[in-house]
Structure formats: C-alpha cells, structure tokens
Amino acid sequence: MRDKGLIFAGLVFFLVLITFPVWYDLAAGTTSKGPDPKLPTAEKDCVAPLEYMRTSHMDLLLSWRDQVVRQDRLTYKAFDGKTYDMRLTGTCLKCHTNKEEFCDRCHTYAGVAPYCWECHIDPALAQRSRG
C-alpha cells in the first residue's frame, strides 16, 4: 500500500468530479421547486377548470383566436354556464392582472417563449409607457 495517498486522493477527486452537478446547483442556489405563479385573489372562477387550464390553456387560446378572427364568434360558454368574451387582454388579463407574476413565471420556468405579447399588449406595460 505504498500509493495509499495517491489512491485516496484520486478517489476523492473522482467523487467530487462525478457529483459536480449537485455542487454546482447548490452553489448557484437552484432548487427543484416548480414555478410559483401568482393566482388572482379577487376572482375564483376561470373559464375552465384549473387542471384543464394548467395543461391546455394554449389550445384554448388558439381556438379562441381562430373563432374570433376567422369565424366571427365572440363569446365563449364556459363549463359552468357563464359566458365570456374571447379576449386575451380583455378577459384573461382582467383577472390575471399581473402578467409578469402569472404568465411569465411558468413560461420562464418551462423555457417557452409564446409570441402572444409581440402584438397583444399587457395593459401594465401600456400604463408604464404612458406614465
């Protein structure tokens, strides 16, 4: 066992190297916690149940888009019988007033960049540009 020091030093080096991702994440302060979108407190009902909205809101929005622009249908009958105007800014953002704390938090986490906002205007942004 003349090379004891060398072997153990090598083993330690190897262990550090192989667990590098863990150290790196700890140092960078990343967590395995999911995104934390801020839900509106004033309004309890959405246009569809939470589970559906969580997984398929994009499909709903695309369908709204085509109905409004191409088929001249303007209102949406929700699952609970209520009717809503099919509008992103006018309906969705009326309750979800803070785009940054609601839309962006999940989208940033998931690494998706929907191009809705290249044209549709976040009212808060309009307010800031005016004020």
Partner: peptide, 11 residues
C-alpha cells in the same frame, strides 16, 4: 405614440 391595450399592435 400611445399604446391602446384594447387593440393589438402588429409585429
């Protein structure tokens, strides 16, 4: 000059 949030801009 003045963004109106009721109507989208174009891109």
């Amino acid at each position: 000059a003045h963004l109106d949030p009721d109507f989208p801009t174009r891109t």
